[in-house]
Amino acid sequence: MSAVDEYPTGKVPLLSVRNLVVEYGYVRALHGLSIDVHQGEVVCLIGSNGAGKSTTLRAISGMIPSAAGSVTFNGDDITGVPGHDIVKMGLAHVPEGRQVFGDQSVHDNLILGGITLSRDEGRARAEHELDRFPILRQRQHQRAGTLSGGEQQMLAISRGLMIRPRLLLLDEPSMGLAPRLVHQVGEIIIQLQKQGMTILLVEQMATLALAVSDRAYVIQNGEVRLSGRSEEIENNPEVVSAYLGGSSTSDTVQQHQKPAQSGKELQ
């Protein structure tokens, strides 16, 4: 197969997903999807509901098994490695819907995020996270379930950062948030990248995703439909009409659908 992504300098990518196939029972959700994420990049996956974006993240972090293909992270083949071991290799996944532990305190949620660290290290990093997000410090003894949606999202990201991951997977961080908070989530992502974090972002809200990312993959029906630099994707007529409030739905892209493993026409 030919899908090795040459961007940006030919260096080995931090994360490399090759021909990933995921099946839910008889339904095939991913049909041989390939993506790369390089050190220091923010890469986003955009696409309509059910395209397979979240499934891709879940398969990478070991939440769900893959039927075929491979995932290489930091030089290690992590295909089939249990999720709880992948975390220890420095890959944090902030799941869709935040999934904070609602019956435990904000501080305990952070401690759980760092449960693979030593006790002292976990405490120290929780302090660091509470400095990063002062609103969480104010709420640290509150049960996480009592936080607002935006605060829960911050907690979920903060909890993922506890292990100081080499790669952060962010699944729909803007979901269900008011516009002001969506903007704030964008700011957080930009800040994290400035601090050197590598991020793979899945976002329904394509404008946000393209604004904060370096590169983008457009996912459709479990395959990479298009890929390229975010500003190029942003100006691509197909994408504009399908995802950026152009003429209408993803059907527009579907009409031009090409066989699997394409998606290189922008490069």
Partner: peptide, 24 residues
């Protein structure tokens, strides 16, 4: 205890607990 909190996390949401590195 941290182990107790991990048990409570599994009780509340096992997939999310696994994402923390907890062996469910």
């Amino acid at each position: 205890s941290r182990l107790g909190k991990a048990m409570a996390a599994v009780a509340f949401n096992a997939p999310a607990a696994a994402l923390m590195g907890i062996n469910v």
